[in-house]
Design a protein around this nucleic acid. Structure first.
Length: 465
RNA sequence: GGCCUUAUCGUCUAGCGGCUAGGACAGCGGAUUCUCAAUUCGUUAACCGGGGUUCGAUUCCCCGUAAGGCUACCA
């Protein structure tokens, strides 16, 4: 069998969204699985809605997600690579003209009302279309049979001539799509199910050119989650844009892993898997036939799993990038050793990088928010003021060199009063961090150091505080 | 309206004629812990309805129903 050639053909008319990313992913996975070529083709024939900015966004998103393409425009937008170019439809006008002439010459296309129509073969008859409320010409012919790799055998009637070149001289989607796939020698078309109904037109076009159609595989669509409403996920839905996950510092491996699981599975109970394993196991017949609803919670969980097991150096690099992207991030990055210490405390506790700033505020400044509800609760239980006073008194002799030493010190203080470590923990945490959540209080003491701990404890102990 | 596709826990899914219908996320409860997470143990929860075929249907067929898509001189 000849080498597999698949393509992802987005049109740069808007932000890059989840559905497009998954279509790209399935194509990419199939190419990598089979050792074939993954081609990026830009469908930029809609001059009115196209923009270079959106095009660059597509390059960036694909690259961020780790999907490299073998042929197509270069990721920096300058030039392109591959032997079947140009890869931007806006530069292929002469090719479309050439193929149009073929059809005209063979009598499979004709002009009407200034547009060019594709001519179906078969007996013609007039009929009244109830829905459109007008007389139309139909063609009697055998139904188109599509042998879809995912859907199985699908039959669909194609019984009306259709426009392939608009009266403004521009070719329509169906035409350019087929011509490009022929000239780029695409062997497998993997695309969303929303194109299944279009496929009968495409097959007729292939036949019109005397070319055997490629293999089709229509993948299920991604639908809105129940909270978002009904229907296909659109760019306007929350969580629909790849850009959003990039800005929120999700790990691309986690997103790719989640996306792969939407409509496909490894055949066993594995979910979190290496991309190399996904490539090895992925195949078209294994793809589901039913649409899937997007679940942001499961994606978040996947992201957390990846985050937890990141090697420290990787996590630190990610965290650095995250703080660099924040307007207020400079304070955190000022002291590398201090930063590192804190990040390692945070890594096992957070669910996503985006939580990092809020999770660690009290390390960067003495001016951190205090959770009023937590304060009310903590100050109402036991005798927190007495505990605070005792802690402050014990501070000068407390050994700050290690977590264990701090813990031992507070424990012995507690024992001397007939209390437990827990009786000091909550109020100390409130004074030092303003919350009831966070890393071990002993680690916080050690990292923040005696002086800052003392001033924060005293601040809360002050009358009226 | 016509045509096409789909239908297992709330969600993602396993199942490819005979299973106590399995896993994951979310939920709930316990354990662990200095808090919060994480972790761990347990638990709630599903075969859309009706006809067939068959000794036997979640599984195959048909009809409903529901969901999604396409119905443009958009892509």
């Amino acid at each position: 069998m000849a080498q597999v050639r698949v393509r992802f053909a987005p049109s740069p008319t808007g932000f890059f969204h989840i559905g497009s990313a998954r279509t790209a992913l399935f194509n990419w996975l199939y190419a990598r699985h089979t050792g074939g070529k993954f081609i990026l083709r830009v469908e930029d024939t809609d001059q009115a809605r196209n923009s270079e900015e959106f095009l660059q966004l597509i390059y960036n998103s694909l690259t961020w997600l780790g999907m490299d393409w073998d042929e197509g425009p270069n990721p920096n937008g300058v030039g392109e690579r591959g032997d079947f170019g140009p890869y931007r439809q806006s530069q292929r006008a002469d090719i479309y003209q050439h193929y149009l002439q073929k059809l005209l010459a063979s009598g499979r296309a004709y002009e009407k009302d200034g547009a060019v129509w594709f001519k179906l073969l078969g007996e013609r008859y007039q009929t009244f279309d109830e829905h459109r409320k007008k007389e139309v010409e139909k063609v009697k012919s055998a139904p188109v049979v599509i042998d879809d790799q995912i859907r199985g055998r699908v039959e669909r009637m194609e019984d009306e001539d259709f426009v392939i070149f608009r009266s403004d001289g521009n070719p329509v989607f169906h035409f350019v799509n087929v011509v490009d796939d022929i000239t780029m020698q695409i062997t497998h078309i993997i695309r969303g199910e929303d194109h299944l109904s279009n496929t009968s037109k495409h097959v007729r076009l292939y036949e019109g050119f005397g070319v055997v159609p490629p293999v089709f595989a229509h993948i299920p669509l991604i639908l809105k989650s129940p909270e978002m409403g009904q229907g296909k996920m659109s760019k306007r839905d929350k969580g629909a844009l790849i850009e959003e996950y990039q800005q929120r510092h999700f790990l691309p491996e986690a997103l790719v892993n989640y996306l792969a699981l939407l409509g496909w599975n490894a055949g066993d109970n594995r979910e979190k898997m290496l991309i190399a394993d996904i490539i090895q196991l992925f195949d078209l017949p294994g793809v589901n036939q039913s649409n899937a609803k997007f679940d942001g919670k499961k994606l978040a969980h996947m992201n957390m799993q990846y985050l937890l097991e990141q090697p420290a150096e990787h996590f630190l690099a990610q965290a650095r990038g995250y703080f660099q992207s924040l307007a207020t991030g400079a304070a955190a990055l000022a002291d590398e050793t201090y930063f590192r210490e804190i990040m390692l405390l945070a890594q096992p506790k957070i669910k996503g990088l985006e939580e990092l700033a809020a999770y660690t505020v009290y390390f960067w400044s003495d001016d951190f928010p205090i959770d009023a509800k937590v304060k009310e609760k903590v100050m109402a239980k036991g005798d927190p003021r007495a505990r605070l006073a005792e802690l402050i008194a014990a501070l000068p002799t407390l050994d700050f060199t290690a977590d264990a030493a701090i813990e031992a010190g507070i424990k012995s203080l507690a024992e001397s009063k007939g209390l437990g470590f827990g009786d000091y923990q909550a109020v100390a945490r409130l004074a030092v961090t303003g919350t009831n959540a966070g890393p071990s209080i002993t680690s916080i003491f050690r990292v923040l150091g005696r002086a800052r701990i003392q001033s924060r404890l005293e601040k809360l102990a002050a009358p009226g505080a």
